[in-house]
Design a protein around this nucleic acid. Structure first.
Length: 196
DNA sequence: TCACTGGCCACCT
DNA sequence: CAGGTGGCCAGTG
């Protein structure tokens, strides 16, 4: 388990839009000061669970429907569809101080997120390959950084697998990781990915 | 400061 | 192939 980022306190309001479809609840958190996404929530099966996750991270937030188009895009991503998602809408800034200005906790995590965001749909990389692409041997730390990914689906951490091509772990559970990869066309037998 | 703790890896049975 | 073990390295408190 990674440290729960509990009761994050931003100096300005966080707006949250929830989208409900096919018995799943999706949400996105937008920072009012920058109008950018600070958090994407993986789907949950109930509204209550989602509220719990949101309030675990944001001491105070306001519900709005303003960002429905964005959450619908995320819903489509979840279903393996091709979506032109503008990465500029992500609040990719570091801030560990109070008050918070961004969701990324350190420089290393940011670099990992940037590398992973380049992995094309329908393909995978290993934790080791991600580390090597940033001239590092810290494969394990890559895993830890992805465990803290504030932007699942948009920054496709589900496309990062272990060196033996078994799936490894995932914040939404390995089953979800497996389904996500299958839906975008990655070949999997059992819990092992096949690459050409 | 320094000992944990991992979305891991390579190498053994 | 499954399971165990020591090693790895950056972040965290």
């Amino acid at each position: 388990m990674y440290n729960k980022i509990s009761e994050k306190s931003y100096p300005d309001a966080i707006f949250v839009t929830i989208y409900h479809k096919e018995d799943l609840f999706f949400a996105v958190g937008i920072y009012s000061a920058s109008e950018k996404i600070v958090r994407i929530f993986l789907p949950t099966s109930s509204r209550e669970k989602l509220y719990e996750k949101i309030s675990d991270e944001f001491a105070d937030f306001k519900l709005t429907d303003k960002y429905l188009p964005i959450v619908r895009d995320i819903f489509n991503l979840y279903n393996g569809k091709k979506v032109n998602f503008n990465q500029d809408i992500l609040e990719l800034s570091i801030n560990k101080s109070e008050p918070l200005k961004g969701p990324v906790t350190n420089e290393f995590d940011l670099e990992v997120l940037q590398m992973v965001s380049k992995i094309p749909r329908g393909t995978v990389k290993t934790y080791k390959e991600v580390a090597e692409s940033m001239n590092s041997k810290a494969w394990r730390a890559v895993g830890s950084a992805l465990a803290r990914n504030p932007f699942p689906l948009v920054i496709p951490c589900h496309r990062v697998v272990k060196s033996d091509l078994t799936l490894g772990n995932y914040n939404g559970g390995v089953e979800m990781k497996k389904e996500l990869l299958k839906k975008e066309g990655v070949k999997i037998n059992g819990f092992r990915v096949t690459r050409t």
